[in-house]
Structures are given as structure tokens and as C-alpha cells.
């Protein structure tokens, strides 16, 4: 097992280098550059050339990439083209906010989807099963940002139950309750799509397991039905859900871009959107790399969780 983990960690390195090369190439091939955004469209050619030289953009692309790469190895992701701040500290400031939002959305999705998915499978073809299927279908047919807008209109504007935007009321950043209060709407918005997906997979995974012989045996032994479902079936029924969780993670992080924009959440998603429009290359690279690191790490964790939940799966 530890050898497997070591190998996976080592594979992460070329993967991340590949990600950085793809991103870098996109920026190099793209027409235009940051000088037009910094100084306006009708910038004099000499001034543009000076700015490009200052930012190191006059070098050949491979040289620029190697410079970026060797600096990155020393923990330096460069400075923002606009503000001059170190990219690393900007990301370190904001990544926890995005992770909080993503984790809360994920927790919401799991907390709702697994109990209801299990319920739907146990009461197969009943009213509750059909209702859950409808909810799951509706959940994946909405643009999630639209749901966020509707939430703001109803729960923030009309009812006033939740704040419209931001992470905390000004001056109350240390108040945990205040922060949780701000977290509810964005987390539910972001988690809703995943909730619907996980629910469908929980249901179908459980349905498959509940038909198997060992469940019939457990029932025949006279075990309490709840014990059979929760202790015997759930563990195997969840394997397919875990696969989906691993696969859906990039979508969850990507969805955060829109959710953060709607709720003015100070995370890396909004940072990336602004950076892209301002052609702030170091920030674009930094954010995407940070997100890629999170993604590969979580994928590895998912694979490790597999072995815990299903001992039949052995790596090595």
C-alpha cells in the first residue's frame, strides 16, 4: 500500500508539469498581451515593447517557461502584473476561502444525498423513491448559478434570512456564527448539482447491492432491517458514489468560479476570472496550478478511501 501511494505521489509530478505546459502554451499562443490591458488599446509600440521587456515577455516562450518553472521550484510563483504583489501570498490568502466553500458544498451534498439515496433504494418504486428521482433530475437540469440568483432573490432579498454576499459582516470576521450564516446560500448553491448526482448513484449502487445473496442471508438470519442496510449494504453500495465523487471534484471546483462571482465570495475562482480579463498571466498560472494540486491530491485520497471501504480492491 505504501509503495502504491509513493508511486502515485511520484506520478503527480509529471502530471502537474503537463498541466503547467498546457496552460503556459495557451497564454503564449493567445493573441494580444497584458500591455494593452495595462495601458489601453492605443499604446505606443515602444511603450508596449518596454512593458513586455519589463514583464519578461520579450523572451522566447521556452525561456519564459523555464524561468517560471525554476522560480516555482523555489516557491516563487512570480508577481501579479497589475499590483506587483507576490502571487503565492495572494493565493494563500484566498485558497482557504475557496476550500471552505467547496468543502461546505460537498458536505451538504453528501449529507442530503446519501440518506435520501438510501431511503429511495430501500423503498424502491414507492412514492418517496419517485419523488427523489424527480428531485435528482431537476437538480442536474438547472444552471447552478441560476439557482444562486433565485436563492438570493428569495432568501436574501425577500425574506432576509441570509446575507446577500460576502464571507462575513464587516468587523465580524472572527465570529464563527456570522461566517457560517454567510456560508449557507453559496454552499447550497454549489452543492445542489453534486447532491443530485450523488443521490442517483447512491440509489442505483444500493439497489444493485440489496439484490445480492449476502443481503438475503443477512435478512434471513433475522437481523434488524436497519442493521442490514446500514452495516451490510451501505458499504458496498457506496463504492460507485466514491468514484463519482472523485470524478466530480473538478466540476465542483469549477462551479465555484460562478458561485463565487454571484455571492462576491473572495476565493480563487473570482481571482481567476478577474486575472483572465486583465491578462495577469502569473495569477492565471498560479491559480490553475493550485487548483490542479488540490485535484490530484483529492483523487489520490479517493483511491485510498477505496481500499478502506472495499478491502477486495488492492493496489500494488
Amino acid at each position: 500500500m505504501s509503495r502504491y501511494i509513493m508511486r502515485r505521489v511520484l506520478i503527480m509530478i509529471p502530471t502537474l508539469i503537463g498541466v503547467s505546459i498546457i496552460l503556459f502554451s495557451v497564454m503564449m499562443i493567445a493573441p494580444g498581451g497584458p500591455e494593452a490591458v495595462l495601458m489601453g488599446e492605443d499604446i505606443a509600440p515602444e511603450a508596449a515593447a518596454r512593458i513586455r521587456a519589463n514583464l519578461g515577455l520579450d523572451q522566447p516562450a521556452p525561456v519564459q517557461y523555464l524561468r517560471w518553472f525554476s522560480a516555482m521550484l523555489q516557491g516563487d510563483l512570480g508577481n501579479s502584473f497589475r499590483t506587483g504583489e507576490p502571487v503565492l501570498s495572494i493565493i494563500v490568502d484566498r485558497l482557504p476561502n475557496s476550500l471552505t466553500l467547496t468543502l461546505a458544498a460537498f458536505a451538504f451534498a453528501l449529507a442530503v444525498s446519501i440518506p435520501f439515496g438510501v431511503l429511495a433504494s430501500v423503498k424502491h418504486n414507492s412514492f418517496i423513491d419517485k419523488l427523489m428521482s424527480v428531485v435528482a433530475f431537476l437538480g442536474v437540469s438547472f444552471p447552478s448559478f441560476w439557482l444562486g440568483i433565485v436563492f438570493i432573490l428569495i432568501f436574501a432579498d425577500q425574506l432576509g434570512w441570509f446575507p446577500v454576499s460576502g464571507m462575513a459582516t464587516y468587523g465580524m470576521e472572527r465570529d464563527i456564527l456570522n461566517r457560517l450564516h454567510h456560508l449557507v446560500l453559496p454552499a447550497v448553491t454549489l452543492g445542489s448539482v453534486q447532491m443530485a448526482t450523488y443521490m442517483r448513484f447512491t440509489r442505483s449502487g444500493m439497489l444493485e447491492v440489496l439484490r445480492q445473496d449476502y443481503i438475503r442471508t443477512a435478512n434471513a438470519k433475522g437481523l434488524h432491517p436497519r442493521h442490514v442496510v446500514l452495516r451490510h449494504a451501505l458499504r458496498n453500495g457506496l463504492i460507485s458514489v466514491i468514484t463519482v465523487i472523485g470524478l466530480s471534484l473538478p466540476a465542483l471546483i469549477g462551479g465555484a468560479v460562478l458561485t463565487e462571482t454571484i455571492f462576491a465570495w473572495p476565493g480563487v475562482g473570482r481571482l481567476a476570472v478577474n486575472a483572465v480579463f486583465q491578462r495577469d498571466y502569473p495569477i492565471i498560472m498560479g491559480v490553475n496550478m493550485a487548483v490542479a494540486v488540490v485535484t490530484v491530491t483529492v483523487n489520490l485520497l479517493v483511491d485510498i478511501v477505496y481500499t478502506i471501504i472495499d478491502p477486495r480492491i488492492a493496489y500494488d
Partner: peptide, 24 residues
């Protein structure tokens, strides 16, 4: 497949918005 893995590590919406914003 390694190339596919790399592509799957970048959240697609991030990449899409980066490319579209840069290329118009």
C-alpha cells in the same frame, strides 16, 4: 491516457474561461 489524466486535473470551466477570455 496520461494526457487524458492531465486534462482531467484542470477544472474544465477554469480552462474554458481562460482560453475563451484570451482568444476572444
Amino acid at each position: 491516457m496520461r494526457f487524458t489524466d492531465i486534462m482531467m486535473c484542470i477544472p474544465a470551466l477554469f480552462l474554458a474561461l481562460t482560453v475563451i477570455a484570451l482568444f476572444g
